[in-house]
């Protein structure tokens, strides 16, 4: 019963850490818009904790480049399991308009495993919230499979 409650709680309390990898800030503004009274993600228990050690979900916006790929990896490693990663915007998915730039590595999944991809340039807040919900379902499945 306790296990069940914990699994249920995982879905009900996703704490988020948002990392701006190399975004043009378009996607960041949309991500932070989710916290405003209009979208109010706290309804779902979502909190922007700003601390990888407390977070369950990592939101990454923007392209990965050679300079910040280590930082991205570091943040990912600091998060205790179970965790999920969401790549946001065209840039986070593949590199977007910056794909061919000399310093760009590509999408987030070149460095760390990504669970959910949220497309858009910039991604809409609704789509981002949807992405988080999708990620939660995924790691509930993972937790169930692990027993």
């Amino acid at each position: 019963m306790l296990k069940k409650f914990i699994n249920k709680s995982r879905i009900k309390s996703p704490w988020i850490v948002h990392f701006d990898c190399g975004s043009c800030n378009g996607c960041d503004i949309e991500t932070l818009a989710c916290l405003t009274p209009l979208y109010d993600v706290e309804r779902f228990g979502i909190v922007n904790v700003g601390n990888p050690k407390h977070a369950d979900v990592l939101l990454v916006t923007g392209t990965v480049n050679h300079r910040n790929k280590k930082v991205l990896q570091n943040i990912y490693d600091q998060m205790p399991d179970p965790k999920a990663v969401i790549a946001i915007g065209a840039c986070g998915l593949s590199g977007g308009v910056f794909k061919d730039a000399y310093n760009v590595v590509g999408g987030v999944d070149k460095v760390i495993p990504v669970d959910v991809y949220v497309p858009g340039c910039p991604a809409k807040p609704e789509a981002i919230i949807d992405g988080v919900v999708e990620a939660l379902n995924k790691f509930a499945e993972k937790a169930e499979a692990a027993g």
Partner: peptide, 8 residues
């Protein structure tokens, strides 16, 4: 919920 999740 928050605390139960943290314990998990």
């Amino acid at each position: 919920y928050d605390v139960a999740k943290l314990f998990g």
